[in-house]
Amino acid sequence: MSDSQTVSVTINGHVYTADCDPRLTLADFIRHKCGLTGTHLGCEHGVCGACTIMVDGRTARACLMLAVQVDGSTITTVEGLASGNELNPLQEAFWDNHGLQCGFCTSGMLMCATELLEENPDPSAEEVREGISGNLCRCTGYDSIVKSVLAAAEKMRS
């Protein structure tokens, strides 16, 4: 046991290694040590969902984990969704349906919806609403986000 620990983690296919103070949150590690600022901090107490990322294939609040916990893990952030300059179908659907305004909640919303569609490729509007209910959006009133996710689901099924 020592104060500072070396963390090595694969994020969006790249390996990042850094010495971390144990108290460094995973969100701050991703944002500041790895420079991946697409993961946003809206509350730092696990309610708003803006920092939602994928850790070993499942969504997690990056503000509620410490960097030292993820040594050896595989992480996907919003920056890992597009291939090259090509938005993925979910991102495209958000663009088509005005599923974002300020864009601050969007990263977490996309990660949350990604998992939702993996588990349920044909959700109802109600299921989408419940699925994203842990992610706060202050701009859209949600309806356009629901439409975006449903449109993405349809496109991804076909």
Binding site: T52, T59, R61, C112, G134
Partner: peptide, 8 residues
């Protein structure tokens, strides 16, 4: 909570 909370 929500699915993301229950994942962890």
């Amino acid at each position: 909570g929500h699915v993301t909370n229950r994942n962890r």
